[in-house]
């Protein structure tokens, strides 16, 4: 019987196990990491070290890589070598900021239609050119149909300006709420 890849000894496997033990990575996540293609698991170890990833971040990255891999029939190494991912990592900043950017990029790949729609809706909100006193928030992960519109006012004049701006943007806000509620095909 062939030996499972996760049972095979190698310097990379040993280093991954050591990283996981030190960070108390749950066994299920470690197992999936070790089941990635050889280049993918080594690339992820390099990233873990370079970005000083926390345990929770690594769990998320493994979940995302695993599911992107299944959805797209693509191996982990190819996902991590994609231009978008490399660009996100190369954009500079602190290690935690780069780790967070990596996760955001992987989420966009994992949820392509959601990412595209969110980008469209964010652009539509920006186009409303509302004053700073009005903040429009999309629901997290577009999981609900509720758009939050906040007014931040410190005096009656700011309040009036915000209310006027919202009234003027009513059609645009209505279209955004409609799209959140599935008015358009996604």
């Amino acid at each position: 019987m062939n030996e499972s890849p996760i049972d095979q000894p190698s310097a990379v496997m040993a280093a991954i196990r050591a990283w996981a033990a030190e960070r108390r990575l749950p066994y299920g996540n470690l197992e999936r990491w070790l089941r990635f293609d050889a280049a993918g698991r080594a690339a992820l170890l390099d990233l873990a070290r370079e970005l000083k990833m926390r345990t929770g971040q690594m769990m998320t990255v493994i979940d995302l890589l695993d599911e992107i891999s299944l959805r797209g029939n693509i191996d982990a190494a190819s996902i991590l070598a994609a231009d978008d991912v490399r660009d996100a990592l190369a954009a500079g900043g602190s290690a935690p900021a780069r780790a967070a950017r990596l996760i955001r990029m992987l989420r966009d790949i994992r949820f392509p239609r959601l990412a595209q729609l969110r980008e469209d809706l964010e652009a539509a909100i920006t186009a409303l050119a509302l004053p700073l006193q009005v903040v429009v928030r999309l629901p997290a992960d577009l999981a609900s149909d509720e758009l939050v519109v906040e007014i931040h006012a410190r005096n009656p004049a700011e309040m009036a300006r915000a209310a006027t701006a919202i009234a003027g943007a009513q059609d645009g806000l209505g279209r955004i709420i409609g799209r959140l509620g599935g008015d358009d095909e996604v």
């Binding site: 599911e67 299944l70 959805r71 949820f111 392509p112 239609r113 959601l114 729609l117 629901p139 992960d141 577009l142 999981a143 609900s144 149909d145 799209r179 959140l180 509620g181 599935g182 008015d183 358009d184 095909e185 996604v186």
Partner: peptide, 24 residues
């Protein structure tokens, strides 16, 4: 492994606009 996100009822569901557009 669809585009399922955690909804307010604590269940993973297809994100709202896509789900509703399919129903419609």
């Amino acid at each position: 492994t669809g585009e399922d996100v955690l909804a307010s009822d604590g269940r993973y569901r297809t994100f709202m606009p896509l789900r509703v557009s399919l129903y419609r």
